[in-house]
Computed example of a mutant assay.
Amino acid sequence: MSLTDLRNALPDYAKDLKLNLDSVLSEAGSPGLDGKQIRVIALACAIATRYLPLTAALEAFAAEQLSPEEIHGAKAAAAIMAMNNIYYRATHLIHNDEYGQMRTGLRMNVMARPGVDKLTFELASLAVSAINGCGACLDSHERTIRQHGASAQAVQSALRIAAVVHAVGVTAEQAAA
């Protein structure tokens, strides 16, 4: 199913999602981000929704501008955040500072060479962290993004992509059920 087909299959009550999806997947609708960043973020978010038709549609959309290595980078951001968001959210929610002082013991080698530039990887990681609900990771990635010179508008755009892609995945899966 193409992205257009998936979008058109959304129920009438999700008209706002249809409009928002078109918007956030464009440079005009995601200020502060370029086309490649939008595609990396959207694909990583689609993976985080766990709705396979949306992931396939956004991977095809991403492949229009991204190299296989950049697509790998989007997948890497989704994969590493699937692990990190659980770990860091849990250690943050436990309210015992001892866990924050301990070595994680989890391999995160992909962060050194993810397949996309550091800023784009951080933006995708932030967006996936929003979907997965990890405040500790959101704080960390937002700080790093801003240190790389990105604006608050770029951060907001990444979060808007996460919100819309997640909502489309939830709604499309429910409509298909």
Rank of each mutant, 00 (worst) to 15 (best):
L106K: 08
H72I: 11
R146F: 01
E69W: 05
E98L: 12
R89T: 08
E69F: 05
V168F: 05
T4R: 10
K118E: 14
G73D: 04
V168I: 09
S140G: 15
E70P: 00
E142M: 14
L25V: 07
Q37G: 10
A48G: 05
E27Y: 08
G35R: 04
Q156T: 13
Y87A: 09
S30H: 01
G32K: 04
I41W: 01
G32V: 02
L33I: 04
E122F: 03
L123H: 01
H166T: 14
R50H: 11
H148N: 13
S30W: 00
K15T: 15
R143D: 10
A154I: 00
P53K: 00
S125H: 01
D34H: 10
D139W: 13
A172W: 00
V110I: 15
G135P: 03
M108N: 08
L43P: 00
D117V: 09
K118G: 09
A136L: 15
A167S: 10
L21R: 03
T104W: 06
Q37F: 00
K18D: 04
T91D: 07
L21Y: 03
K118W: 06
M111T: 13
K75M: 15
T171M: 08
D22E: 13
A90W: 14
I41D: 01
I86D: 11
L66V: 05
I38G: 00
L58D: 00
G73K: 01
M83N: 09
K36Q: 14
A76T: 14
E69D: 14
T120N: 02
Y88I: 08
H166W: 10
A177L: 14
E27K: 11
S125G: 12
H72Y: 13
A76M: 12
T49F: 06
D5P: 04
Q101C: 09
G35C: 02
S23P: 02
L10M: 08
I41A: 01
L58C: 01
R89P: 03
P11T: 09
V165A: 04
P68C: 07
D12H: 09
A78K: 07
T91F: 10
R7V: 03
T55M: 11
I94M: 12
Y99A: 06
A44S: 08
A172T: 01
M83E: 13
G32R: 05
Q101A: 13
A124D: 07
A176P: 02
G115H: 00
I131T: 06
Q37L: 03
I145V: 10
S140P: 03
L106D: 04
Q37N: 05
Y87W: 12
A56S: 12
T91M: 11
E59A: 09
A79N: 14
I131D: 05
E142T: 15
C45V: 08
Y13R: 15
V164Q: 04
M111V: 12
D12V: 13
Y13A: 14
I38F: 00
L119W: 04
V165H: 03
Q156D: 14
T171V: 10
R103P: 07
T49H: 05
V155Y: 02
A56D: 11
I145A: 05
C137F: 04
A172F: 01
N85G: 03
G29R: 05
V165S: 02
E142D: 11
D22L: 10
Y87S: 06
A127Q: 06
L25M: 02
V168H: 01
R7S: 06
K15Q: 15
P114L: 09
N20T: 11
G149N: 06
L17T: 12
R160D: 15
P11G: 09
E27G: 07
